[in-house]
């Protein structure tokens, strides 16, 4: 191949001097995974700002980005951090409780057909209960401190975790389970040394879904009963007709979800790099 390409016979006569290879613009943009979405986002903000000015949209319908930024300063930083901390705390505790509860249940579901027959329909029923509708009841039963909010968060974050963990625990190649049995190893090591590590990619996809759900859970709980927290702040601001301020709260929530999601992704990349799809390593 290379030899024939070098032979003078094959050299094309009329071809002009080669320009340095240049990719089309779209290809070059695709090669910039961070820049491209940022550009899109900035463009959207500019359009948004322009639209609100050109069409004089009232700020209670759609506040301009600049008005939303002003909304941030309507509240002191200390108050902001109190709100953020209240929501973050409930989201994280609910998330951790969901992880702690779903793991043993997933192990039971994966290991025992009896348990999966007995428990799975029940889990599906629980999952089908609209948590938003149950939230007021839970608040009445459990009072108004963190406990009911954690329970509501837990209920929302729990199901995807159980499903992904169970799927992961059952995804182990049967040969490895046979290897484990042929070694007559203790049962628990089949879980800790084979099934759980094998489930890591599945567990992390569940963890990523659930962490954003946990934020939603905390906010839903605050909508029902709270005197602090971003969810409470948004509801309160809306009821006072301070929409730019409510939008600022929304921005904080989005940032919180994104950061939590990225933190989970980062944990996977740091501690379980082998569990990532190959091209992303």
């Amino acid at each position: 191949m290379s030899a024939s390409a070098d032979t003078p016979v094959k050299a094309p006569l009329a071809e002009p001097a080669r320009k340095p290879p240049s990719l089309p613009l779209s290809e070059r943009l695709i090669a910039m995974p961070v820049v491209l979405p940022l550009l899109t986002f900035a463009l959207l903000l500019v359009l948004w700002e322009a639209a609100t000015r050109v069409f004089s949209i009232p700020s209670f319908i759609l506040p301009a980005p600049t008005r939303i930024i002003e909304g941030f300063s309507a509240v002191t930083p200390a108050r902001w951090s109190a709100h953020v901390w209240a929501t973050l705390r409930v989201a994280l505790i609910g998330y951790l409780v969901a992880i702690a509860v779903s793991l043993p249940i997933a192990i039971g579901l994966a290991k025992s057909r009896l348990m999966s027959r007995a428990l799975y329909p029940l889990l599906v029923v629980i999952q089908s209960v609209p948590v938003v509708a149950v939230a007021p009841i839970i608040i009445v039963v459990l009072g108004t401190d963190d406990a009911p909010r954690v329970v509501i968060t837990f209920m929302i974050a729990f199901f995807p975790l159980v499903v992904s963990m169970t799927t992961g625990l059952m995804a182990t190649p049967p040969e490895l389970i046979e290897l484990s049995r042929s070694l007559r190893a203790p049962q628990y090591r089949e879980i800790t040394q084979i099934r759980l590590p094998y489930a890591v990619p599945y567990i992390f996809s569940g963890l990523k879904i659930s962490v954003t759900l946990a934020v939603i859970g905390a906010v839903v709980a605050e909508f029902v009963a709270a005197d602090v927290g971003i969810g409470f702040f948004i509801q309160f601001s809306t009821s006072m007709f301070r929409l730019p301020q409510a939008w600022a709260g929304l921005v904080v929530l989005v940032a919180m979800s994104l950061i939590l999601f990225q933190a989970v992704s980062l944990a996977q990349r740091l501690f379980f790099p082998w569990s990532l799809p190959k091209e992303r390593r």
Binding site: P173, E175, L176, E178, S182, L183, Q193
Partner: peptide, 24 residues
Amino acid sequence: IVFQQATLLPWANVLDNVTFPAKH
């Protein structure tokens, strides 16, 4: 036993895969 697919542990290096029977 040697299986049709090697079915190694994807998170363990060659040495750890070979010593896995002891660890397990």
